[in-house]
Nucleic acid binder design. Structure first.
Lengths: 233, 233
DNA sequence: TTGCTGATCAACACTGGTGTACAGCATGCA
DNA sequence: TGCATGCTGTACACCAGTGTTGATCAGCAA
């Protein structure tokens, strides 16, 4: 077998401009796509390199082994996720909970997941084949934030933080997978994100939040009952 | 390279009893484990055969290609899941909704997912790499059941059935993945299943159910508030 | 301009997997 | 007791992937 797979085209691709940083990112991006499609075991350096428009050897220049490439990609994705949700400050975990509006963070996660379905998928894939899923940084931060919130007077007593976190996160990342076929334009994606967060908030309103503390949310949810964000069944 | 990989052990495994059905199942079972560990792309006929204690050639007698083996395994898992939740009657989808207690089905799913974490994992893996996740038989049946329920007077108005279904299913199958490390004995697993269904029902109670129709559930939930099924943080 | 550094690339050897073929063994059943 | 059939062992052609190496070429500093 020859090295080049696309023997139809002019036989020689132009050599890539010298740009280590850019090349590295191109490889990571390609690996992310691959990872999102087939999961960890479906990633091959050969395919990633081809997708990135880079020689396979170059990929090995940037990442010693296939394993390390996957690891680096997973970490990269994890960082993107973490940053998007908690902000890039490393002190995010320390922020007082009251400052974090439940509503805002729910909508934020839903929207991000909908706009970047690949990231959520990769994250879920990683989690499914991880031996210690609970050690995940994003998971831990989300959980501990919610646990602290659950202890405030804003929350209902007796909330099981771990269960609620699993429900929220799993739902948020799986929702785009299911909804993908129905949402092709940016506007549709936004609506789907809204549908998700609205319903999750509605469930939360009595289940985890104390409604008397969230009267405005209550009225707002009631307001767009059956509105344009409703299910399109 | 030699065919045998385990050259340390007594050199010859005892020949398998002649039992086509059993052999087939053993292969499927091994494939399921493999599938649950690494996802679709991580499955090789060679490894599956070895795990099943069967010659590689035998595996090819039962399944023509690797692709077909994986397909058959996924279908097998899907059937197990479907059967466990909806019963083996093909008419399950037609059953009047009122007969299906929301409480019972929630607990049922939670318990089954907890007792058979592999099946949930395989199902999630499949879903994540499927191109048409919404076509899944189990998903469709669950959704349509819930949609019919949502139209009854037992349900709150304005429930987004699709979102709730995603939340429920995704949560139910991911919960065992996260909870696995904390639940090693059968008793612990049962408790974890209870934790999950209890919290989900609590969320549902006001979000999707009409509380005035479920007074008994309400009191029961309130009863074991902070009971032994509570979070172990 | 020249020379150096290191990013990029093509080619190589090797591994492990697939799918096929076939001979031999053994077991359940007519 | 045959004997059809399921299982095993082995061999082979082939492919896609891994990891390595040495050549090449672009950009930059002297």
């Amino acid at each position: 077998m020859t090295e080049r797979t696309d023997s139809a085209v002019p036989a020689k691709r132009t050599r890539r401009k010298r740009d280590p940083q850019g090349t590295r990112e191109a490889i990571l991006e390609a690996a992310r796509q691959q990872l999102s499609q087939d999961g960890k075991e479906g990633v091959s350096v050969a395919q990633v390199a081809q997708r990135a428009g880079v020689n396979r050897g170059t990929a090995y220049q940037h990442f010693q082994t296939r394993e390390q490439l996957i690891e680096a990609t997973a970490a990269w994705v994890s960082d993107q996720l973490y940053e998007a949700v908690f902000g890039d400050a490393d002190s995010a975990g320390e922020r007082p909970v009251e400052q974090l509006s439940v509503e805002a963070i729910t909508q934020h996660v839903a929207e991000f997941a909908m706009q970047n379905p690949e990231i959520g998928r990769v994250w879920l894939f990683e989690l499914l084949s991880s031996r210690r899923p609970a050690k995940d940084r994003f998971w831990q931060t989300y959980l501990s934030n919610f646990e602290r919130f659950a202890r405030t007077e804003l929350a209902q007593p007796g909330v099981d933080a771990e269960v609620v976190t699993v429900l929220t996160i799993a739902g948020a990342f799986l929702w785009p997978v299911m909804a993908r076929s129905q949402a092709r334009t940016a506007k549709e994606r936004e609506q789907m994100a809204k549908r998700f967060s609205r319903e999750l908030l509605r469930l939360s309103l009595h289940g985890t939040l104390r409604p008397e503390k969230f009267r405005d949310l209550e009225t707002r949810l009631a307001a767009d009952d059956g509105g344009d964000a409703g299910p399109a069944v």
